[in-house]
Amino acid sequence: MHTLTDAALVGVVLASFLALGTSRLTSCIRATAIQGWLLALLSVAIHEWPPTGHTFFIAAVSLVMKGILIPILLERAIRQASVRREVEPFIGYASSLVLGGILVVTAFGIAGRLPLPHQTSSTLLVPTALSTLMIGLLLLVSRTKALNQVVGYLVAENGIFIFGMSLTREVPLLIEAGILLDVFVGVFVMGIVMYQINQEFDRLDTRNLNLLKD
């Protein structure tokens, strides 16, 4: 299973770069959808074969929520807002990609120093988790469209979820399902607020949100 795990982990990082390097909002949404599928694959591949009911349930829930429902929700939001592209990001696409590369190198550096108490199933697991988290945060701060900030949040959360997989014992089902549900409802509420931002300002740009200050 190691090759499959490693391939999926590499795929997760590549998907975050896809979100980082494109101006098309639909591509950003697809990148999170791909990550959702890969997460479902990972949660099965990482544990011993055959998967327990618990593993299978979590894989199915993350596939449905992160791979299907959230992307559909976000696609609908941008169709209503009729925005296609992120026009003026705070950090350009080329620079974002370079920064993303630096973040991945940093993640490997940090992961090499962390005292892992036991052998995780793949040496790529912790570096992937950290670089996905950092790329997500980079997306969040460097884009102006509300949608891309949601994408950044999702990518960062995916990174944390992967980190959770590196624990030897399974996190209790109640908690794991609760985490997935919280993230889904969170994106759902953000989707509603995005819709309202679009109604109010006629565009999905968070630079319009500048009324409140001291």
Binding site: L140, A146, G186, Q196, E200, F201, L209, N210, L212
Partner: peptide, 18 residues
């Protein structure tokens, strides 16, 4: 339902969620 309330809600959601 005012623009100010909208901005406050968005900031609250994004900053606290992250």
């Amino acid at each position: 339902r005012s623009p100010r309330a909208l901005e406050a809600t968005w900031k609250y959601l994004v900053i606290c969620s992250v």
